[in-house]
């Protein structure tokens, strides 16, 4: 068997297009899953036991069952309940449900890592809860949550390949279709693997950048913040 990677070249435009689909379903579901996960994390920390119980049950179910099953369920089983979705929206729904559960727990860990005294100090100056959340809790929570969050993000990017089973034309399904007609599995799978690695590497770089940005005390004040605070540039005010 001779391996010839140049045979991949004509298929690159199709593979890149498929990678575009992978990016879109990953970003869309991760975006939805981040917003929902954040509110679920707040719900999980709520003082209302019923709300806490609902969120706990949600996480139990959706973190405890495979995303592959969620995809099948939304695509094949939901029509029995009168909901019929095209592959693309079905994938978004299933992938969002799944990653929401993980993001809920990751963001909760971040939010709960903030010392209660931090919140009390903000209450004592008269800040309302939404402002405390935005100005005191979230900035500190992000620093703790960023590593597990990005780990889940990367894991979710690779997990998007499961959407191939409900015929979403993303990278994995497209690679399969190409090698089943060309019998060039090694070359095509290698190409797909390289593209996945590029995508996840981009997220790894993003993580490094975010981690650096969130090391607030090491970075010092930005020029913009100094200007707003009427502090002399570079000096000690």
């Amino acid at each position: 068997m001779n391996i010839d990677f140049s045979m991949v070249i004509p298929y690159l435009p199709i593979l890149f297009q498929a990678a575009g689909v992978t990016i879109v379903i990953t970003l869309l579901s991760q975006g939805i899953g981040t917003v929902l996960g954040f509110f679920l994390a707040l719900g999980r920390m709520s003082r209302f036991p019923v709300l806490r119980g609902i969120v706990w049950t949600y996480v139990l179910i959706f973190r405890g069952t495979p995303m592959l099953l969620h995809l099948f369920f939304v695509y094949y089983a939901a029509p029995a309940f009168g909901v019929t979705l095209e592959p693309f929206p079905a994938a978004i729904v299933a992938m969002s449900l799944s990653t929401t559960a993980y993001n809920c727990e990751i963001l909760r860990a971040g939010l709960q890592s903030v010392h209660p005294g931090q919140i009390e100090a903000a209450q004592a100056v008269g800040m309302s809860w939404p402002r405390i959340l935005r100005r005191v809790v979230i900035p500190q929570a992000l620093r703790v949550a960023i590593v597990p969050y990005m780990t889940n993000f990367i894991s979710h990017t690779k997990g998007s390949s499961l959407a191939s089973v409900i015929t979403v034309p993303e990278l994995m399904l497209t690679a399969q279709m190409i090698y089943s007609s060309t019998y060039r599995a090694i070359e095509i799978l290698t190409a797909a693997g390289v593209i996945y690695l590029l995508l996840t590497s981009a997220l790894t770089v993003l993580q490094l950048w975010l981690e650096k940005r969130l090391r607030y005390d090491e970075r010092g004040l930005s020029r913009r913040r100094r200007r707003q605070l009427l502090l002399a540039a570079g000096g000690n005010g």
């Binding site: 005294g117 931090q118 009390e120 500190q140 620093r143 607030y216 005390d217 913040r225 605070l229």
Partner: peptide, 8 residues
């Protein structure tokens, strides 16, 4: 103290 560590 409970100063906010992310702020100067």
């Amino acid at each position: 103290f409970h100063l906010w560590p992310h702020l100067s």
